[in-house]
């Protein structure tokens, strides 16, 4: 009995450094955010506030910049997560089925992942940005096919959104392809042999064997994809610069950042409220995802 207690104590002792670290860098800030978000009329200079309440949330939810950021974020999530996952699955299947130069292709598809976001952003600038000298590569193409040039960086909302989604998909695909190709490689060859003996058609093999076998990985990618897309920020900066509100391309995380450090910064209470709203959204979506994936696993 005593021995057991001692053992438990020892266990906690070993955990102590990690717990302290987590407490200091995770729990404390989280608690702090909660407190900040409830402090009404917080003044950064005097470090004083009027009282506690939900005013910060009300403010944020009525702020047109926040609503714009919310809309942008949702559009990015809804467009990029399914498309990037679907495309990655398609490419992984093709990559898995080719034999010669497999490694070479896998490397090519993985390169964007190890390339710096801002460098990729620059490439996108060349592709899409209108300057005094050039309309950008894509516009040249559009014109070659008889269309009229579109300003993708400073032009209409849909054009900017298109570039944004294109870019996001481009950036997240390599990781998904990597995960999915290894998931596919992990499916035992014997399943396919058994399916061949039984004369199973290609589509049925995919639908009845491959897909269920790699579905845990697909769900993993969808969940992390949702979380990642909800937290989008740096990609937007890479293309549209730091003044995202002016470009109308801000995201929730961008809004939080602006509230803290931007030109209009110095509002930690609003920032905290916005980040808690984001947390609530991500939490809800993840729970829904997990429920669906659990249900699927059981079915």
């Amino acid at each position: 009995m005593k021995k057991l207690k001692l053992k438990q104590l020892k266990g906690w002792l070993y955990l102590l450094p990690a717990l302290l670290f987590l407490g200091f860098f995770m729990v404390y800030p989280l608690a702090d955010v909660l407190v900040y978000s409830a402090e009404e009329g917080y003044n950064f200079a005097s470090q004083s506030f009027f009282g506690y309440g939900l005013y910060n949330f009300k403010y944020v939810l009525r702020d047109p910049f926040f609503l714009q950021a919310l809309k942008n974020t949702f559009i990015i999530v809804i467009i990029t997560v399914p498309i990037s996952t679907g495309l990655a699955l398609l490419i992984s299947l093709k990559l898995h089925s080719i034999k010669p130069l497999k490694e070479a292709f896998q490397t090519i598809y993985f390169l964007p992942y190890v390339t710096n976001t801002l460098a990729v952003g620059l490439v996108f600038m060349i592709l899409f940005k209108k300057t005094a000298y050039s309309d950008g590569l894509i516009n040249l193409l559009i014109k070659a096919f008889g269309g009229s040039a579109v300003d993708f960086i400073d032009g209409p909302y849909w054009a900017k959104l298109f570039v944004m989604c294109f870019y996001t998909i481009w950036v997240v695909m390599p990781f998904k392809i990597l995960i999915l190709t290894s998931a596919l490689a992990g499916v035992n060859e014997d399943y396919y042999k058994a399916a061949r003996i039984d004369g199973t058609r290609k589509f049925r093999i995919f639908y009845k064997i491959t897909l269920p076998m790699i579905s845990p990985m697909i769900f993993y990618l969808i969940i992390t994809g949702f979380i990642g897309a909800f937290k989008a920020y740096s990609d937007e900066v890479a293309i549209f610069g730091t003044n995202l509100n002016a470009a109308g391309m801000n995201t929730i995380v961008g809004y939080v950042y602006d509230m803290l450090y931007g030109n209009s910064g110095g509002y930690p209470s609003y920032a905290s409220a916005a980040s808690l709203i984001l947390f609530a959204i991500v939490f809800t979506i993840t729970v829904i995802n997990l429920l669906i994936s659990k249900g699927n696993a059981r079915a």
Partner: peptide, 21 residues
């Protein structure tokens, strides 16, 4: 003749049963 048209049954060393079915 293709495997599916030969009229054979094959049992694998690791059984290769589909785990999700």
């Amino acid at each position: 003749v293709a495997p599916e048209n030969r009229g054979i049954g094959l049992v694998f060393q690791n059984y290769a049963l589909y785990p999700h079915l």
